[in-house]
Design a protein around this nucleic acid. Sequence first.
DNA 1: AGTTGACTCTCCCACGGTGGGAGGGCTTAG
DNA 2: CTAAGCCCTCCCACCGTGGGAGAGTCAACT
Lengths: 300, 300
Amino acid sequence: MTPAITTSLLRIGDFATLSRVSVKMLRHYDTLGLLKPVWVDPESHYRYYSVEQLPRLHQLVALKDLGFNLAQIARLLAGGLDDNQILTLLQAREAELQADITSQQHQLMNLRSHIARFDIEQLDTEQLDAERLDVGRSDPSLDDAVILRGVNTISVASLELAPTADVSEGFVRLESYVSKYHARASSAPLLRYLDTDTLELCVPLSRSITGTDVIQITRLPAIQAASTLHQGGYDNMAEAYSRLTAWLELHNYQLAGPLREVYLRFSAEPIEDQLPAAFLASTSNDYLTELQLPIHMLTS
Amino acid sequence: MTPAITTSLLRIGDFATLSRVSVKMLRHYDTLGLLKPVWVDPESHYRYYSVEQLPRLHQLVALKDLGFNLAQIARLLAGGLDDNQILTLLQAREAELQADITSQQHQLMNLRSHIARFDIEQLDTEQLDAERLDVGRSDPSLDDAVILRGVNTISVASLELAPTADVSEGFVRLESYVSKYHARASSAPLLRYLDTDTLELCVPLSRSITGTDVIQITRLPAIQAASTLHQGGYDNMAEAYSRLTAWLELHNYQLAGPLREVYLRFSAEPIEDQLPAAFLASTSNDYLTELQLPIHMLTS
DNA sequence: AGTTGACTCTCCCACGGTGGGAGGGCTTAG
DNA sequence: CTAAGCCCTCCCACCGTGGGAGAGTCAACT
């Protein structure tokens, strides 16, 4: 009983049929060195495979189905990795996949709240036909002025003030303090409404510096925020605020932190003229302010 | 109070800073017609944007975050779609996303069962060191011979037999019946163990034909299957079977239907010689059989 | 032995969203 | 007027997959 298995050679098409992997891909795996044919005719360059290669190919496909890319599969199939290394790769992939799923679930919830909004509008339609004909109406699908966006953590120098205090004087103090250290990051200054009798002015930092009694160095947390823009002077921002709160209710989100006003374009005080020019506006018509309302997504 | 808003024009870099979208992408959106600058200098070709364009850009980004591609976004932003059309698009995207998530969750469970297997092995290692040194051992990460794969529905002509009956005679009957109709699909014939005293022989069909009293035309359901290959004659397939069942236990899956034997390479009876040559083997050493064990994934 | 049809070879291109870089023009502050 | 920093267009790369052109090869049937 010698195990004299003399398997016949398969041409690439037959091997493709057997393995249910396309000819194109087999050739690709060959050039990548993932699965070389057992024999290649030196004259015709025809690739010849053997059934013994099916298990390896199936491993390859299985790894692909786990979401590894071909480079990673090459490393895994090459062997020479001990169990711990393999385990690490698997776990890394697990974490990645986990993260992907979470982010897609967020997408899905987001999408559903948009769809829900349509359903509400359709109900309205039935009841409020008369009114609607007059009103005309903005495009309902594309939240005209409010968007949901992620905001990263920001290192800032901050200063707390009473609501009655002079805000721009506070910013001047902050900017001049930060500029002494040459630590000004080139992003927009902002303000947070910590509670009804505290404002917090923030100026982004490019590196860590030390604070003072009143000027604190902190990191603002990353948030998901409902965001809207207000263009023009600061006297009429009520509209933007009501847009935000209406959106919040409609989409069924919950407040998750202090509101932020981000000053995207504004008038520079003399002391602030080291700021990136992109942020400077010449007239109050050009002022641009982003309102960010931090939210939790309700896991419905 | 005329609304004479005369906004200044922004160069692409400033607009990119404000919108947090890269310059590259702004140019790309321009060429795709998704967001044209309000003005382009005809001499220098410099693009000039206005802050009024930010809301549109933010809509664009929001849609991108919902997973729409740029072509779809173009359609959505172009306007001219009524509510129902938009709703349809949103729902289509919802379904797609839902499907993606499901498939990724399958991936994740699959991945976890591989990881779990490692943990088990590491436990074994502590307890069974002595033995293991002798045994040598196959690579544990890449289930050497068993893979998990999806199998699509297959239209087949089928014939039920008792386990004692002559299988190859049954296949001859099936193949000759099917070939009369020229309805043979070019994939491998298979057998299902319906219960302890019924075998079902199946021959894939390329189109629907009518059956007879004993030859039935059906569709095999799509399954997830643990799959392994057996090479050689049919007298010693026990090893392959035990591989499968061991794998099943190890990975904590549940049986979800009758086992299938797929005859990937075998000896052709004369009557069957219309079969694709890829399936024909000349010696029993070249026989190739795939065992498919349909499984449910346990939602752990 | 030659023809024919099916198969295979290599090489190039495309997708989509994003970024890198080269080579050259434009603007604006000093 | 110069230098630095913008901006322009055009090309290339990623990654996994497939399409197609043009040429060569194999096997089966006259």
